[in-house]
Amino acid sequence: MNTNDQGRIAPRRPIILTSPDFRASDIAETEAEYVVRANYAEAIAQAGGISLILPYQSQHIAMLVALGDGVLLTGTTPGHEALPERREFELELIRQTLQAGKPLLGICNGMQIMGEFLGGTFTTSLPDTAVDHIPADIPDRMAHRIAVEPGSMLASIAGTTEVSVNSLHRHALTGAGRFRIAARAPDGVVEAIEGETDTFCLGVQWHPEYHLSEFDRAILRRFIEQSAGRKSQAGSPEACSVRRRLAALGLALPEASVPPGAFVGALTTGNLVTVSGQVPLKDKAVLCKGHLGGAVSLDQGRECARWALLNALAQLELVAGGLDRVKGFVRLAGYVAATPEFTEHGAVIDGASELLRELFPTCWQHARIAIGVGSLPRGVPVEIELTAVTNGGEG
């Protein structure tokens, strides 16, 4: 429990997941270190957040993103390239952060890796102009002016369209992608980007953590405010994280179908919801018909499993009162219409299980059975039933 100097409970600060650099050891591999300059953490603290430094462990990203309120991608050690392990980790961290709808701020190399994820490219040769992008070994002084794009989020933070910034970079972002260029240096080098996403997504080429101007402080404050704001809105229908993840995957829940018989689509018992078997309907039509091992390929079967799961989630949402009320899953049963020779039933139902993991990264685990059958209703190749745990009547 946090308390202030008067002993009163203080509000929880937003947790900012911070990607570090990696420093190898000349002594032994066991002495290698994850490192972050102290002024990153201090700048986050002064803006109202608290930094949590992340190891390069991609298998834990989903859990970490669920824990954090925002993500900061830091720059690399001056004069050093980012390790492949760091690049791979940060690309996955960006993907899951945006999928979860959480604020993202990239600084220097952090902006460049954001731009790469969003479709841009790197250049390692900066223009030969009077603009010095590496004026000193430490970016503790103003280096050049930047032109801020009118109407951009960055312009709303700056309150003007021209400001001075520090600089320490050898690479630059080029090309187009799913981002808007928010600022350029006088020589045309991209100095800031804003992701075309539904959440705060800002990359800056300079180092605002040095707090050389009120503009630098304002950027960090806006990032922390967005992180805190997202946390406070987590329970609202508009902030439904599952629907945001669906949108990030280019998917949407279908309309819950009317059961074609004397049964209900889903039934609640205590805090358990059992969803009746659902077939792969897309736009109220059967996605495909046939048998695995016959006319239906493995990839088609997996896609059918995904759509059958989406239909099951539509029924679950209807009964549970929202997918953000789901606390976990008990069992997923998959039925696969297949020829006698077909044996990859589990691989087909993986299509549903993997989608469940993407949509519910912190509570997707479930028991499962995959059963081969001779035929299924309406001639479909896959049917899915699901049992979920909800928070019942809790708010």
Rank of each mutant, 00 (worst) to 15 (best):
V65D: 03
T76M: 07
A43K: 05
P103R: 14
E90A: 00
S58Y: 00
M63V: 14
I113P: 01
G115Y: 11
N39G: 12
L118E: 05
L64E: 08
M111V: 01
E85L: 03
G75S: 02
G48W: 10
I113G: 02
I61K: 02
G75L: 00
G68A: 13
H60D: 15
L105Q: 05
T123W: 14
K102F: 08
Q96R: 14
F122E: 09
N39H: 15
G48M: 01
G110R: 09
E81I: 14
F122P: 02
P78F: 03
G101I: 10
E92N: 11
H60G: 10
G106N: 07
R86Y: 10
L67G: 02
G70I: 01
Y56I: 08
E42Y: 06
L91K: 12
I107D: 11
Q99D: 09
L83Q: 15
G101D: 15
I61P: 03
A43G: 04
P55K: 05
L52Q: 10
T74G: 11
S51V: 00
T77L: 15
L64W: 13
P84M: 14
L72N: 00
P103L: 05
G101K: 04
L52C: 04
Q96T: 08
V71A: 07
L52N: 08
G48N: 07
E85S: 06
N39T: 09
L93Q: 07
Q59D: 14
L52K: 12
Q96L: 02
E42D: 12
A62Q: 15
Q59N: 12
E92V: 05
A41G: 02
N39F: 12
L72C: 04
H80F: 13
L105P: 00
E81S: 15
E81N: 12
L98Q: 05
L93T: 01
Q57S: 03
G48Y: 15
M114C: 04
G48Q: 06
Q46Y: 10
Q99L: 09
M63L: 12
P78K: 09
I94D: 12
L73M: 15
A100K: 09
G110A: 03
E42H: 11
G70T: 14
M111Q: 13
I94G: 03
T124W: 13
V65W: 05
A47S: 11
L72T: 00
R87N: 06
S51Q: 11
F122T: 07
P84F: 14
E85W: 07
T123N: 00
G68W: 05
T123V: 03
A47V: 02
A100Q: 08
A62H: 01
N109W: 10
E42M: 09
P55Y: 08
L83I: 09
E116W: 10
T74C: 04
G120Q: 14
M111C: 00
I44W: 02
I113R: 12
I94L: 06
Q112V: 04
A100H: 13
G115D: 07
A62E: 08
P78Q: 02
G101W: 13
N109Y: 15
M63A: 11
G120C: 04
I107P: 06
